[in-house]
Amino acid sequence: MKEAFTAQMFGVYGFGLLETLYMVIVSTFISYIIGLPIGVLLVCTDKNGITPVPWLNASVGFVVNIMRSIPFIILLVLVSPVTRAITGTTIGSTATIVPLVFSAAPYISRVVEQSLKEVDDGVIEAATSMGASPMQIITKVLLPESKPSLILGAALATITIIGYTAMAGFVGGGGLGTIAVNYGYYRYRTGIMIVTVVIIVALVQAFQELGLYLSSRFDRRK
């Protein structure tokens, strides 16, 4: 157990944590850039949405569902040609961001969709009755009104991505997951594995609490 708490190991944990945070934050950010508009599109083109386009809604929904049904660990391998094309490699934390985005963006689009659907139809109708355009309804009603829910969704998405980064550790994805696998799994250093798991748990807790705090801070409904 002692070997888990040497000065050298603390350096390893610290570096692993930074790598994990780097992967999580960058991939969450990029996934939102892709997933948020898709989520908005799914809500607006719904048959009860503000600009119904049933065929578009159905096809985008279908693609999202397919992406979401592929297990992350398989997606990781499946998109490796794309990963190589973009980053020049398939190992390390930067390379891992590519499959993370592939997996998280469709997931985030559904999380966003769910949040936006919580906005009361009456409020949207009121905005329409005031002469708001669909774009104005999106930017001035749907998104601001669902802000607390969107923040909670972002915490959920971030936590899911943390889980994926740990999984990516198995195939040299870098970060805390790689440390857990390399030291704990291959070299039977259980102590080190436990420490990395504890750090990951703390990270998940921190993001969840931050999400809850920010969500209630911005919520004017109470």
Partner: peptide, 10 residues
Amino acid sequence: FQQFNLLAQR
């Protein structure tokens, strides 16, 4: 409207 339909976050 009956349910007022105010923007809750404003």
